[in-house]
Design a protein around this nucleic acid. Structure first.
Lengths: 206, 206, 206, 206
DNA sequence: AATGAATGAGGTTTCATTCAT
DNA sequence: AATGAATGAAACCTCATTCAT
């Protein structure tokens, strides 16, 4: 019995590992080629499994694609949620401590690939756009608004009107992700310096 | 003889019209479906020509795609170049008069579609990325730098460091294009107000 | 103009020829292997065209299958309709002159293959079963009933109750088609003698 | 030791039960979908076993298919053999007492499904056609011939020539099986009345 | 003996591209 | 120059069969 369970556990673990390997491989392939040009066969090969195995874990190509996006982006919302809104600390400092690493994470890791994928394919995957809007953007912007509101109260903001446009705070991140995606080799961007300058535009000089 | 030439001229004009019709149709289709999922047959049908005719004007699908992007983006560089860098006028006013309409043009017309296409497919069309970088971005950013330099001289800038990051000036435009592309129906963005707030962040209050 | 039309006519004729060649080839293949086991590639090869060409003429495998059945069976109803119901001639004679050749045609030509196909696949093609019932069986049985009614009036029938079961008249034909399909090589059936005996069962001896 | 044997017996019984469950399930699936479109996975699921288990009992899909047909049809030959050929009773009465229930059994139970399967797939399973011919048809027709011979002796037959075509006696049954299979819902057939009319055609009115 | 995850050959369908008309 | 029928490579997905557990 115990042995059986251990065996089962082993199999299940192997299955999970395979599932993850496929997701990893698929992310690479989709990021490289986009949805339509990615071949399931290539994903399978990269994951080290047979073509059919992909279909044991995901219903079809779309399902695989959506799984990647959902998978990769949920940690982002957690990251944003982790920025504290209370305490004595200045909001600008909060941004420097929390938002900059988050941005680095997104721009430099595969998370950025997923974001680019979403931008590229979102129109053809309305479900994903919906999911992304509801699960990531709305909460993230609510959080941002709270932070900016607190900054406004503290007189930290150069222009309090920005409270209504949290988009503006995130725009340079988006720019960085896209720039690096397209021109990293050609003309790399020092996105950390860029982000710091950005903060200096938003917040009063200390 | 003269008739022949006139005919030839007529033919040539018709050929040009066809070429344009194909480009128009292709833009619509590519914007809607992306590169891989666009069918030459659909482009031809939309342009009102036979499939084979497309191949009389463009070598293949990639050639057609590149022609669209080159075609659509050159007016942008003209637009940016049209912003005067000298004169007595305040730079902020210049932006309000020139950059805002430019942005409106990009976000609301097919130009935005092309930009989105470039973002989506740029990785698979390095030639295009190169072209775009050299022909659009470098000149545009040089121009922007000049404008910002002048603003810095005039003491218009809240944070003169932005001179080194013209990207920051354009970031909200990028954000707007992408946002509207994905979420226009779900949660439309008042990108003009957003852009004005953005200018208020960059420039000293007057 | 005239030349153009002639050319067009030529193309159209060639297209029709191809369509027919595909139908022929498909009938052979479907009759041999049934619906599921028939490969479009084999159909194409037998028809002497490329795989893709099949899809220029038929939407998909099902469409091709249905086209065959509809195509092959409509002449049957014409054949049955051609049996005259009036005149002085004895109904039994009519059957001998008309039904026997019809049966020979069905049992010995590809029409029988189609009938077997319909029997085999009808359940999975309800549209076809419907079509066959409405377009072939109902008219054919109405006609048969009329003939039998006349025979009853003339006192030709051994058992007038058969007027209500025209099925019984056709049953031996069905049996012959199936028997020949399965056992022709093993144990061939003299279906003409069988049919004559059948008529002798139904009609009074003359 | 005794326990071991009992266990073995138990196991063997369980194995037999499983084998039967698989056969049952397979019959349902094959009858519904035909040979090619039936999935072993579905059969296993319906039988409540794992896919691999099917392969412990049957070599492959063909083997399973043949087992079903052999299994289902042998009772038929028994049924026909059970019709007594001697005694004082009139042959027509014998038919009414024995053949009618047999027909009801075939038309209304899964036996009819098997018959339809044989008709559909017989060409692709020559071994089965052979088996069916040798084991079912030849004995059944010999028996029938004997019965008809006796009827001829008694003067019961309207047309003694039918002795040479026992097929004719069975034809309406075949027609009924096929008709019900294809059109039961659309236009159900009162096959018992049909069969009685059929007998009235064959035998002298009493 | 039983399982069911994994395999990969094989089939359908699409569509960029060609070329005879 | 224009057409669009024909091609056939290529991709998705299925499922009979195997085999480690």
């Amino acid at each position: 019995m115990a042995e059986k369970e251990r065996q089962k556990g082993l199999r299940a673990k192997q299955a999970d590992e395979r599932r993850l390997a496929i997701l990893e491989a698929a992310l690479d392939e989709f990021a490289q080629s986009g949805f339509a040009a990615t071949k399931i066969g290539d994903v399978a090969a990269r994951a080290g499994v047979a073509k059919g195995t992909v279909y044991l874990h995901f219903a079809d190509k779309e399902d695989l694609f959506e799984a990647i996006v959902r998978n990769a982006l949920s940690p982002v919302v957690t990251g944003i949620g982790a920025i504290p809104t209370d305490g004595e600390i200045k909001v600008k400092t909060l941004f420097e401590h929390f938002a900059l690493p988050l941005m680095r994470d997104i721009v430099e890791t595969r998370r950025g690939d997923v974001l680019r994928l979403l931008i590229s394919e979102g129109k053809r995957f309305p479900r994903l756009a919906l999911f992304y809007h509801a699960e990531i953007l709305v909460p993230a912007m609510a959080h941002m608004r709270r932070l900016l509101g607190k900054a406004a109260e503290n007189g930290e903001l150069r222009n309090p009107a920005i409270v209504d446009f949290p988009h503006l705070v995130a725009a340079p991140m988006l720019m960085s992700v896209i720039w690096q995606g397209l021109f990293q080799r050609l003309d790399p961007l020092d996105f950390e310096a860029l982000f710091r300058t950005h903060l200096d535009n938003i917040f009063q000089p200390s």
